[in-house]
């Protein structure tokens, strides 16, 4: 069955992409399976300089999900270009470079440095990380600021720009429309939901950062709703993400209006989850009467 799908800059052999932060730069998953099996891979956020991230504990389990407050830990864009991208160049898969920062110029610096890297297919503008104090989510919760950073990124980028949206807003549709009008080539939605857990013995938050981003199957209905709402309001493609755990979930996101999906927290539960989903997708599409991924996209009813 033809599982391929074409989005700006992303000629995907199948619609399954491990989400940024859940697969590092591919090295660990490559010990388990051939990364060329993946439609693409969204690599861990790059910032201009190295970031250690937040103090530990950074991880807490929740019902059908987890909280994380990593804090965009990465070695900085120069290190990533020199040491991580050459590894990914060995594989036949699309690379989405997640770009983050504390200020506008950070995003532009990362984009300009990565612009001429042939291994990168597209940029994923992270204006939705709930775990850093400045930038990130500050830009992603206001339509005008989101549009502004999108315009700057588009002006700087030589590759398509996807904007990753946060669900921690009153109207995600307003943000989606604003970044579309600002020239975004696509949307990735949703980033994590802001959450918290408190340890009953100590009476203190479990995470050292106090709050963290909720991911996993617990957030899937929120993500499906957000994709469905935005798919009716914008005409740029959407990459759906949030709690995908099996091939049926991929079909659900496609029907909601996504053209591809990212798989996040489930990579931690089953490190083979992406290839298992890819292997099972044909069976699921068959079962519900579809002949290809594109067939779902063409026949879905969004209203």
């Amino acid at each position: 069955m033809d599982l391929s799908v074409k989005l700006p800059g992303l000629d995907l052999k199948n619609p399954v992409i491990p989400a940024s932060g859940c697969a590092g730069y591919g090295r660990e998953l490559a010990e388990l399976y051939d990364l060329s099996r993946l439609g693409g891979i969204a690599i861990k956020s790059a910032t201009p300089k190295e970031r250690f991230g937040n103090p530990t504990p950074r991880i807490a389990e929740t019902p059908m999900g987890m909280l994380n407050a990593i804090g965009l830990q990465n070695h900085g864009v120069d290190y990533i270009i020199e040491n991580e991208l050459p590894f990914l160049a060995k594989y036949d898969t699309c690379v989405l470079a997640n770009v983050a920062g504390a200020a506008e110029e950070d995003y532009i610096e990362v984009i300009e440095k990565m612009n001429d890297e042939p291994v990168i297919s597209a940029f994923e503008l992270n204006i939705s990380c709930p775990n850093v104090k400045h930038g990130g989510i500050g830009l992603g919760t206001d339509p005008e600021l989101a549009a502004h950073i999108t315009r700057l990124a588009k002006a700087a980028a030589k590759k398509p720009v996807y904007v990753k949206l946060t669900p921690n807003v009153t109207s995600i549709v307003d943000i989606a429309k604003a970044v579309e009008a600002a020239g975004a080539d696509g949307l990735v939605m949703i980033n994590t939901l802001l959450g918290m857990r408190i340890d009953l013995k100590s009476g203190r938050p479990v995470l050292a950062n106090n709050t963290g981003g909720l991911s996993g199957p617990a957030i899937k209905p929120v993500a499906v709703r957000a994709v469905w709402q935005c798919a009716q309001a914008v005409s740029i493609p959407i990459i759906g993400v949030g709690g995908i755990a099996r091939a049926e979930d991929v079909l659900e996101f496609l029907l909601a209006g996504a053209d591809a999906v990212e798989v996040g927290a489930m990579n931690f539960v089953d490190p083979y989850i992406c290839v298992k989903i890819i292997d099972d997708l044909e069976r699921v599409l068959n079962k519900y009467g579809y002949t290809s991924v594109r067939d779902v996209i063409e026949r879905r009813k969004l209203k």
């Binding site: 859940c22 590092g24 090295r27 660990e28 530990t56 991880i59 994380n68 990593i70 927290a265 931690f268």
Partner: peptide, 13 residues
């Protein structure tokens, strides 16, 4: 405290 256990998520640094 770990999530992935294989070095990908940076949860246990």
């Amino acid at each position: 405290r770990m999530a992935c256990g294989m070095g990908a998520c940076m949860g246990c640094v």
